[in-house]
Amino acid sequence: MSASSLAETGQYLTFKLDEEVFALDISKVREVLDFTKITKVPQTPDFMLGVINLRGSVMPVVDMRLKFGLSKTETTVNTCIIIVEIDLDGEVAMLGALVDSVQEVMELDPDQIEPPPRIGTRLNTKFIKGMGKQGEGFLIIIDIDKVFSADELIMAQEMGGEQLPLAETG
């Protein structure tokens, strides 16, 4: 399924975290928003920034830098929220991904994409769909469903919960 969809659309939205360029399958992207005020939900891990009001619905936002082990995002004029559609255990959920900047929409032929490297990346390789060649450089095509799989989110929540003086611990 993932291989065929890769071949079909061939279009990617690229964005930057730190100095690295990442790419997202365009069919996963709903829209791109400017940075807006985020309401923090208490007792949740740091990378889960909180929620925003997206035209009347409440949308969770995740800091991609923290999620990928970089330092916390410093808000600039280029900071954007990419609204992505993810598949959570067969249920479609929407989520905002906070990134340093959004670059462009570009096309990649299948022969421009190489399988993910085993080593040499800071990123957990299971999050990577492939490496796209762009001139001299590379861009990392991420598998957003895996990044935000139910396991990842629930694990994060449990971690967040442990730091708290909950009643059950006494």
Binding site: T44, M48, G56
Partner: peptide
């Protein structure tokens, strides 16, 4: 709050205020 924040202790949901701010 959606699936992502389903099990946050002490928070049962969210609402939108007149100026569009989210309140928990």
């Amino acid at each position: 709050l959606g699936r992502v924040y389903r099990h946050v202790a002490g928070i049962s949901g969210a609402t939108l205020l007149g100026d569009g701010t989210v309140a928990l």
